[in-house]
């Protein structure tokens, strides 16, 4: 999903958000590759090499619980948000809302200021 933005910027931007979205998806038990596909379909393309260390870290921190299902053709490890993880997710949602609102507000102000001054800020409005 190319936005035209600098790929490095976009990757950094997504890195934090994908954790929040992954935690939200893990309200219901899902196995690792299932989560990769879901995130990809939702516009957060992420490789296993990126997602697995995140899941492992969350698991170590007690944010996720896990269990193996060995009844299918292949053994699958299902991850699910723990009670502690749910609290963590809510805290992250709060942080996300704050960042989003602050970003919107800052960009709005900048845009309003831009209507008076030049777009690149080279010529700020002058007062006599």
């Amino acid at each position: 999903m190319a936005s035209g933005a600098d790929p490095k910027f976009e990757a950094e931007l997504r890195r934090g958000v994908v954790q929040l979205v992954a935690l939200d998806y893990l309200e219901t038990p899902r196995y690792g590759y299932d989560l990769v596909r879901l995130l990809g379909a939702a516009g957060f393309p992420v490789e296993e090499g990126t997602l697995y260390p995140i899941l492992r870290r969350f698991e170590k921190q007690g944010i996720l619980s896990s269990r193996w299902d060995t009844e299918g053709a292949r053994p699958r490890k299902y991850y699910e948000l723990s009670a502690e993880g749910r609290a963590q997710k809510n805290a992250m949602l709060g942080a996300w809302a704050q960042v989003r609102d602050a970003t919107d507000e800052a960009l709005k102000r900048s845009m309003e200021a831009g209507q008076v001054g030049s777009p690149d800020g080279a010529e700020e409005e002058t007062t006599s």
Partner: peptide, 16 residues
């Protein structure tokens, strides 16, 4: 633990 997890991811992706 990591070996089990990663092997499962490889098998899942390869099957898909």
């Amino acid at each position: 633990r990591v070996r089990e997890d990663v092997e499962s991811l490889i098998l899942e992706r390869a099957a898909d």
